[in-house]
Every structure is written in structure tokens, then in C-alpha cells.
Amino acid sequence: MTRGIRIASIATLATQIIIVGTGGAVRLTGSGLGCTTWPYCTPESFVPVPEQGIHGIIEFANRVMGGVVLLVAAIMLVLAIVHRRRHPGVLRLAILIVVGTIAQALIGAVVVFLHLRPDTVGIHFSISAVLVGVAAWMAWRVFRGRRARWGGSLAQRSLMLATTVMVPVVVYVGILTTGSGPHAGDGGAARNGLDPAVMQHVHALPAYALLALAVGLVLAGWRMRPFGIWAATLLGLIVLQATIGIVQSNLGLPIALVGAHMVISVMIVAATVVAALSLRVPAAESVEADDVRERVAA
């Protein structure tokens, strides 16, 4: 039974990330209005009709993926209820994910009804990033259990806090940058009015600050396990993200690279959450660490 909830927690995290990719495909192929209504694809048909072409298929596939995400989240919720004593705290996170996933579906309807306004599209993506972070937190709790308190050195905790603050800043500026550019989800969709050339540079500033913080995390925590491993994973994702960002900018924003950029952004959110949680230590380890410090002080 424990294996089941572990698989479900990983599946929840994976599907929350995958739907960012399918949603990105909708936006990047100009299929945001491939289905003109919600929950039906057309006023007369639940599924796409031939007249809608590939755009209808892409948009409908993303909606189907949304159903898969909700189903997996619901299964995780049932398992969290069954194992609520063995895995305390997981139930609250599972409830939050189910509620958030349902809210995402409703916001998706609003996005369609408002013809892909950049602010609604940005909210849609922001909630996806939050859900990925919560799913990563939940998976960590399932595998590692409850942690008593923060461990690590002051430098590690300070760098981790700064990184945790900087990640949503980078994601938000990235949302504004995308909303100013050519990939708004449909050929006739509005942009947010910002200059995309300027926004690329604005986006780069917090991104490079985040890169510097990640380097600091690795240098400060490479000897500490598992924190050092997750800090290195986070750094690797940020380096990959920065590389893709530079290349896509110079190549005129090809949709494959922009889509990868979107998916990696939420993977960075997940890695940040797990890296932060890896600084938490169990109660037994907290007591042992206190004893060591007392002996050293004596």
C-alpha cells in the first residue's frame, strides 16, 4: 500500500508538469481558440469537428490531459485519506492539489471566454507553477515523512530563502515577457503591450541573479546530503534554462525551445521546493545535532 501512494505522488507531480507542456503546445501552435467553447469544443460537439483542423485537436488533447491530471489527483487524495495516519500532512496537500486542479479547469474556461487575454493566461500558468510546487512538496512528504525543523548552516538557509524568493520573481517576469511576444495562443489574441525586446533583457536580470544564488547553494552545501544533490540538480536546471533562453532569443523564438523553456521553468519550481525541504531534519536528527553542539560548546 505504501508503494501505491508513492507511485501516486510521483504520478501527480509528473502529470502537473506534463500538462504545462501540453498547455504550452496549445499556446505555441496558436491553438488557444481551437475549441471555441467550454466544456464543449464547439456549441454543438463535445469533441473537435473536422472544420477546426489541427488546432481543435491540439486544444482538445490538452483538455483531455486536464481530465487525466484531475483523475490522478483524485486517486492521490483517496490514498492520502487511507494513509492519513502513516503519512500525516499529506492529506492537506492532496486536497489542495485537487481543489487547485479544478480551479485550473474553470480558469481555463475563463481564458477561452475572454479570448486569451494575457492576464488570464498568465494567471493560468502561475497556478500551474504553484500546483507543481505543491505536488513536489507532497511527494517529498510521502517519501521522506515529516521533518521536525530547519537544519543546515545559516549560510545555507539564507541562500535557500533568497533562492525561494527569486524563483517566483523569475517566473512572473517570464510570464510578462511571453505575454508581450508572438506566442499569445492565437493569431488574433491580444498582447500585454510591453516591448518584447526590452522584456527579454528585464527577464534576464533576475534569471542571472537566480543562477548566482544556485551557484552559492552548491558551494555552501555540496558536502551535505541530500541538500547538496538537490542544490546541484537545481543549478543544472537553471543552467539549462538560461542556455535555452539565450538560444531561443537568437533564433527568433522557435516553438520547440519556447515550449521546453516553459516546462523547465516549473521543473525549477519543483527542484527549489525539494531543495528547501531537504534542509529539514527529522526529530531524532535534530536532538542529535543539539547534543553535538552542546558537547562542542562545553
Rank of each mutant, 00 (worst) to 15 (best):
R27I: 03
T29D: 15
T29P: 11
G30I: 15
G30S: 14
S31L: 08
G32Y: 00
G34K: 13
T36Y: 11
W38I: 05
Y40W: 15
Y40H: 02
C41V: 13
C41F: 05
T42D: 10
T42W: 11
E44A: 10
E44W: 06
V47P: 02
V47E: 02
P50E: 05
P50M: 08
E51Y: 01
E51K: 02
Q52D: 04
G53P: 02
I54L: 11
I54F: 07
H55M: 01
I57W: 03
I57A: 07
F60A: 02
F60N: 00
A61E: 15
R63H: 03
M65F: 12
V68P: 04
V69Q: 14
L70M: 13
L71M: 06
L71Q: 00
V72K: 02
V72F: 11
V72L: 10
A73S: 14
A74I: 13
I75Q: 12
I75E: 06
M76V: 12
L79K: 14
I81C: 04
V82S: 09
R84D: 13
R84L: 09
R85W: 03
R85S: 07
R85K: 06
R85E: 07
H87S: 09
G89V: 03
V90G: 05
L91T: 01
L91D: 05
L93S: 06
L96V: 15
L96P: 00
L96R: 00
I97V: 15
V98E: 08
V99T: 10
V99Q: 05
G100D: 04
T101C: 11
T101G: 13
T101M: 09
T101H: 11
L106K: 00
L106G: 12
L106I: 09
I107L: 12
I107K: 00
G108Q: 07
V111P: 08
V112Q: 08
V112F: 11
